[in-house]
Nucleic acid binder design. Structure first.
Length: 310
DNA sequence: AATGAACTCAACCGCTCGGAA
DNA sequence: ATTCCGAGCGGTTGAGTTCAT
């Protein structure tokens, strides 16, 4: 016996909204504001469930909704953020003013996802600037260029560096050569870093290399999604160099508190030394378009929240 | 022109989370 | 500590539209 659908009540309208219903809902929200969705239909005189009203308002009627095609810039940003965040559409939508999570989700599923399945995207570029599989968007059916054997983000099983739900981000590793100044949310923890667990890369290979040139910071009570939306008042206080984000092996965390929520901002490759960091924008250190994809996505995101990237 | 396939996207569904009681 | 409820999220559905034959 499953749960009753919220619109199961007899007499409620379902399906496409009429112009009249839109008008009623818009007028009501203009006067009374958003919220109390469950009671809204009755009070507004709509034969809809609250959930349906909420969705209609958020995805279609809101005045700040941006209509029209997704621009190239927006698409690039969607791809970058998806690389970073996975299918967290609302979070992605939050970075694209006027776009809704539903719209982005649909766009991804019908455009970008499909294109990536063919190993082809405007976003991925080679070191010489040539578009991988540059057969263009129109050439969706063409075979992917083996040189750019991009593994597209899987619909469900992709090992996204960020888990599906917002997770506390307890540790951020930044470049050592630049010391942070005081900030309310960030504390430097050099001593602990020296005793920090070895870095474990995505292949499960343990190395201490990163600790040679990384400093560990703790973000108190930080949640990664919050971090992405944070307005950092004094970006210069960080003066850091962030390269990429990678989930460390949670089993390497020293306390149970840290397990399952332990992240490193790290270079895309762990085999290089400090020069890797300094030359991170040099494509030569990137081993695959995938590296470029994830790194660029992170760089842009971190840059947008005030981190200095080089 | 007719028809079926493919595509798009608004809407729905089930689930989770967080706050209030 | 537990339960309830409102709200929000991501996955899925299906009606309408466009495209190909």
């Amino acid at each position: 016996m499953g749960r009753k659908p919220c619109c199961a009540k007899e007499g409620l309208n379902r399906g496409a909204w009429t112009a009249a219903e839109d008008k009623i809902l818009t007028e009501y929200i203009k006067i009374h504001g958003e919220g109390k969705w469950r009671h809204l239909p009755k009070r507004a005189g709509l034969k809809r469930c609250g959930k349906s009203c909420r969705l209609r308002w958020l995805n279609y009627l809101r005045p700040d909704i941006k209509r029209g095609n997704i621009t190239d810039d927006e698409e690039d940003l969607i791809i970058r953020l998806h690389t970073l965040l996975g299918n967290r559409w609302s979070l992605i939508a939050g970075r694209l003013p006027g776009r809704t999570d539903n719209e982005i989700k649909n766009y991804w599923n019908t455009n970008i996802g499909k294109r990536l399945q063919n190993g082809n995207s405007k976003f991925f570029t080679t070191s010489n600037g040539v578009e991988p599989g540059s057969s263009s968007l129109a050439g969706q059916d063409s075979d992917p260029d083996p040189e750019f054997d991009i593994k597209p983000p899987q619909k469900t099983a992709a090992p996204c560096p960020i888990p599906p739900k917002a997770t506390r981000c307890t540790n951020v590793i930044l470049s050592q050569e630049l010391q942070p100044r005081n900030h309310t949310n960030v504390t430097c923890d050099d001593e602990e870093t020296m005793d920090a667990p070895p870095f474990v890369d995505s292949e499960g290979i343990v190395t201490n290399n990163l600790l040679d040139f990384m400093v560990d910071f703790e973000i108190d009570e930080g949640v990664f999604s919050d971090l992405l939306n944070t307005d950092i008042p004094e970006p210069s206080c960080f003066e850091n160099k962030v390269v990429a984000v990678e989930e460390a092996d949670s089993s390497a965390a020293s306390t149970s508190d840290e397990q399952g929520c332990y992240y490193h901002l790290s270079p895309p490759t762990i085999s290089n030394n400090e020069t890797c960091l300094n030359n991170v924008s040099d494509d030569s250190i990137l081993h695959s378009p995938e590296d470029f994809q994830s790194m660029s996505a992170l760089m842009e995101t971190m840059n947008s929240i005030g981190f200095e990237i080089f």
